[in-house]
Amino acid sequence: MNYSVIGAFTIILIVLTSGEIISMKTKAFVPSVFVSAVLFLIGFWTFMPKDIIAMGSFAAPIVNVAMYLLLVHMGTLMNLKELLSQWRTVLIALAGIFGICIMTLTIGKTLFGWQTVVAATPPLTGGVVASILMSKAATDKGLTSIAVLATCMYVMQGFVGYPISAFCLKKEAKRLLGLYRNGGKEAHLAKSETASELTSPRKKLIPPLPEEYQTPYVILLKLGFVGWLASKIGPVVHINDFVLCLILGVIGCEIGFLEEKSLNKANSFGFLMTVLMAFIFANLSQATPAMLKQIAIPLFGIIILGVIGMYIMSLILGKALGFSKQMAFACTLTALYGFPADYILTHEAIKSVCETNEEKEYVIDDMLPKMLVAGFTTVTIASVIIAGFFVKLL
Rank of each mutant, 00 (worst) to 15 (best):
E359C: 09
H347L: 08
K370I: 09
A341S: 03
V384M: 07
L368A: 11
K360T: 09
Y343K: 01
I381V: 13
M367D: 06
D366F: 15
V373G: 02
A387F: 06
I344D: 10
N357T: 14
T356P: 11
E358Y: 11
F329C: 05
V379E: 01
L321G: 07
M371V: 10
A382L: 05
T378P: 02
A387V: 07
P369L: 15
C331R: 00
F376G: 02
G338R: 01
I364F: 14
L368F: 14
A374L: 10
P340H: 12
K325Q: 10
G322H: 13
M371K: 11
L336D: 04
T332V: 12
T356Y: 15
D342E: 09
C331K: 01
D366W: 13
V373I: 15
L333G: 01
F339R: 00
S352N: 12
S383I: 03
S383A: 13
I364N: 10
L321P: 03
K370Q: 10
P340N: 10
F323I: 03
T346N: 11
A330M: 09
L333A: 06
L321N: 08
P369T: 14
L345P: 00
A382N: 03
H347I: 04
M367S: 04
F329S: 04
L345K: 04
S324F: 14
P369C: 15
Q326D: 06
A387C: 06
D366T: 12
K360C: 06
A341C: 01
F376I: 04
I364T: 13
Y343L: 08
A335I: 10
G375E: 03
F323Q: 01
K370Y: 11
T332N: 10
T346I: 08
V384Y: 05
A328W: 05
T377Y: 11
T377K: 09
F376H: 03
I385N: 01
K325P: 05
G338T: 05
L336Q: 08
L333W: 12
A330T: 03
F339G: 00
